[in-house]
Design a protein around this nucleic acid. Structure first.
Lengths: 225, 225, 225, 225
DNA sequence: CATGAATGAGACTTCATTCAT
DNA sequence: AATGAATGAAGTCTCATTCAT
């Protein structure tokens, strides 16, 4: 079964990554508790014992899976944000659609399900996720929205809420894709199209003249996802 | 431990409900797999054996939990919808805010987490959830949006997507409340306020003159949640 | 397999004791690490799961085994000591021979092997053993020897050492019985006879006029076994 | 890590000895079953694989440890015995005290614990230990005691028992040093002093006019340790 | 030869479920 | 009907041993 092209040494290098990928897939699919450690190992083409050479426990493996895929994506996100330019409105439309479209189609989208599902059991995850993902993402988007409001592109609304309105549905379809969406029912929501329309719809809402008195007075809470 | 106010007879009547409540709380908090059947029983004030008198297996208990809380809430939703009147816009603002605000604060909000978490392991849940919750809710909201578009209140957009943009963030904060939101980090998002602002924001987007050419041409996919 | 004479309830009462007995036998025979928890359970006529109902872990079972058999024997020892009377010399000869003869033939003799074998791995055992067994036994014997010396029955020697000279060989044959002595070699040392001769021999030594200058000046260390 | 003073060749020569020393220390400290093969290797400054180059299995290593340290000490014992002269009494006092004092302070003292602990699991050890250690030692001491009795130095007692009374406590404090004695309780028995007093005390007993009728009639059993 | 990655049998422990009381 | 003792399948993790490099 081991790829004869790869030497022992080379395989060893690749092992952690392979295990992480296998673990992500299975944890997302079946849940952490319902996935046996051996399944992960077999999925990665190694034996049970090998898994434990690289990760001291199933729980550590879970944390590594989350950290790994998270850091990778967030790094890409920061890059992408830096490259975009133009008005706040254009920036958000372009950047959000690109980044989420990519994420949606990658296995990393499953990390959301994993975090949602397992934080309560492993609270350390919360801290890490909050500071490594939520915080920076919310910061970035909040700054852009604020700029848009300052320049008169957007109406005055609670910035935190606006960011959530933009982002939560995108998180949600990632979740969806790996839960109900994977259940072979007939309704296959077109995630790509939805991302685009949603971002545009909410930004249209932000650009619109206030047809209704918005509940914009509340203190801006920070960020949930 | 048994409430002396209640007769033996009355308690027996209440058992299934009490078990369901206990199960909902624990399954949502720790996940189905990580919750022991005995914990549920103890939480409901009965012994392990008694649980099995009412539900033949832990899995059956899970399904009962989901069905029960779902039906209850959906019934209320239908009622509420029937009572509202006025323009499509007013109808949606009022109805959505009321219903979700109530749901958000009730234990039933946890069912979303349960469904997201466990569908992949128990696919029967998907079928039931789709037909008992998603289908009717999407139908109802879709009809109202369509009416709004027909009457010129709303722009032409993909109806399915619009419904999702309205609803997914609301599902998402329910999820949030029972996962990251329960993790005692400092950022306590004000769910109530968010619901109101979000519904208004998206409906503003729907009412706005199209500042951007929306990707409205795609076929309307059906419903994700 | 469960004795039909005993009701569920009655069996439950007896279970911990039965498990303790089975555990003592097996731990002494094969060592703690080399005995499987299931073996102990089966030996006691129950299943693996039942063992864990009574003792939360194999290690806890070990500690219980030691404590239980120890306390029992030490209690008997104290009783016996209280009943004996006469000169220090007669007291020691009678009491030691009786108590050790009984112990030697009981399964409890194996506890010595267990303690010797496992203290290094479970240091809590040391504390308990020291205070529950060594301390009281040494105290008692030391007091009698001191009395004998005060009354001129015994020569002046280091009291702690004298007690050890009396007792250590007795501990040793208990150990022996459960290690080499159990190995079906031809030399079956007669433990009973040895106990008697040894006690008499050492007490004769204590009563003798000092034919050799004894190293009696060292500070009396306390007690090792 | 390899000592630069030693050539590759010399190191290789020393390997088996180093492994044996490491194994003795760890097996005595933690028990055979609880010591991992890799620990032994690391302790000896080599890798797991190297251990297996010298000893085909962990069990073989155990047997080698016991044989090795045993032969070494017994050889020394025979030498020492040959050099001593004088009366049976003086011979025993001198020889026993010297040999046991040396042994007590050497790592080889731990072998007793190892044998006591592991014979039941590896019965081959018993045979080897009996013929290589117990038999010759008992023979030697028995001969001297018999000579002493024939020459009127000692009273008539069971020779086997007398040898045991002399020797068992010495074995016992070696055991003690590596079990309870290693447990950092406050009572640090002075082994050296005890050895001297004990040998003298028992020999005094043997020299004494019989103040009590000794149980000397029993058949002389052979040797326990 | 030495290394240490890989294997997989096997041990501890948990927990859903059954059933005597 | 309710209890909780008992069971045993199943899962996590360890470690002796092998073998490619």
């Amino acid at each position: 079964m081991p790829d004869p092209e790869l030497s022992h040494r080379r395989r060893k290098q690749a092992r952690p990554q392979e295990l992480l990928d296998a673990a992500l897939e299975l944890f997302v699919e079946k849940g952490f508790a319902a996935t046996r450690a051996e399944e992960v190992a077999l999925h990665a083409g190694v034996s049970k014992g090998t898994l434990y050479r690289y990760y001291p426990s199933k729980e550590d493996l879970l944390k590594a899976v989350i950290s790994h895929h998270l850091s990778a994506r967030i790094a890409e996100g920061a890059d992408m944000a830096a490259r975009f330019e133009g008005s706040a409105d254009a920036l958000l439309r372009g950047m959000l659609i690109d980044w989420w479209t990519q994420l949606y189609d990658s296995p990393a989208a499953g990390v959301f399900k994993l975090v949602i599902t397992e934080v309560r059991n492993f609270p350390e995850i919360a801290q890490h996720y909050a500071s490594a993902v939520v915080e920076p993402a919310h910061q970035l988007l909040g700054t852009i929205v604020r700029r848009g409001m300052a320049q008169g592109e957007f109406r005055n609304v609670d910035i935190g809420h606006a960011v959530h309105s933009l982002v939560l549905p995108l998180v949600m379809i990632c979740l969806h894709r790996h839960s109900l969406g994977a259940c072979a029912l007939d309704w296959h929501l077109d995630g790509q199209a939805f991302i685009a329309q949603h971002v545009n719809l909410v930004l249209d809402g932000l650009c619109a003249k206030p047809p209704s008195p918005l509940a914009a007075s509340r203190p801006a809470p920070s960020l949930p996802l």
